[in-house]
Simulated scan of single mutants.
Amino acid sequence: MKNRQWQVRAPDEQAEQHYLVQPRALAGGGDIRHVSEFLRSSGWRDKSKKGGPLHMESPDRALRITYDPYVLPGGWTIHSRADSTNREWSAHLGRQTPVEIVAGLTDALTRPRSAHAPNVWAPLQEQNWHTRFEGQDYMATSPDGTAWMHYHHSPEGPAMWWTGATDKQGNGWTATFTRDTPMHLVQAFSAELASPDPVMRPRGRVPLSAQIRTWSVSVTPSQLRAWQQARITAAHTAAWARSNTQSHRPHTSARPYTPAGGARTRR
């Protein structure tokens, strides 16, 4: 975010104090609407009950996302049922997982899969994370040592992804992805985890940690609404484009089977 973005305000608006926080992995959970509003604008159904946990369902009902802060340990659960091409998988992310990092995964659920082979470690290595083998595990650690990503595999148990962040006071979060979680989704998550960009938190919502750096900024309500609306508009636009592409896709009927060498007349 550039400094000039914070200098534009509508007349008679009272600016509010916010903070840019770095590293983002230690910024705290944030506003869950960053995730839910994007999904809703992408065509997902909000199945939440009033006063209860968040519960979102994909248009084809194959994916469910919940956020439940009322139980221990609480947090995010993403579950996908098995289909003709994918096995069942799930991910569990702690309550203090920053919503911007959660959105790396959940936003990717609304987009078509890239034709390129995914590489979970590439975004981490691009940001100078230290990658190495430790026994049966392959792992990466952030340059400041506060965040990590592991691929754990052992004969005694199922393979899984394990990631998280913690400061010297023990504050932080962990997340796990089952073995069959599609790799492009784990990569989308790791890209947001490794991003050097700070995230914004309102006053009173910044964690007390000696490992974070903060910058005070003045933000007006109209600026916040504009940034939120830009994200929602992007989701609406992508959803419309997908729907338009599918509706204009040509329909072809199956041709009768013809043996090699052309059709033959039975005598």
Rank of each mutant, 00 (worst) to 15 (best):
K2P: 05
M139K: 06
N171P: 00
D12S: 15
R40F: 09
T146Y: 12
W6H: 10
R45H: 11
V120Q: 07
A15F: 13
Q125N: 10
Y67M: 00
G261P: 03
S195H: 01
K47T: 06
H92Y: 07
T166Y: 07
W162F: 08
P123A: 05
P155H: 08
H251D: 10
Q127M: 11
P256D: 13
A117E: 06
W6Y: 13
W162Y: 12
E57L: 12
G51L: 12
V71D: 00
S58G: 05
Q228Y: 08
A238Y: 02
A188D: 11
W227K: 10
V206H: 03
P207R: 05
F177R: 10
T214S: 01
P123G: 06
Y138S: 03
F133N: 13
P59I: 13
M1L: 12
I101A: 00
P98V: 02
E126T: 04
D68Y: 01
H251S: 15
W44Y: 03
P182G: 09
H55E: 08
S195T: 11
T252A: 11
R201M: 03
A226H: 09
S36D: 14
K2M: 02
M160G: 14
P53I: 05
Q96L: 01
G104P: 03
I212V: 06
A235T: 00
L20E: 11
Q22L: 07
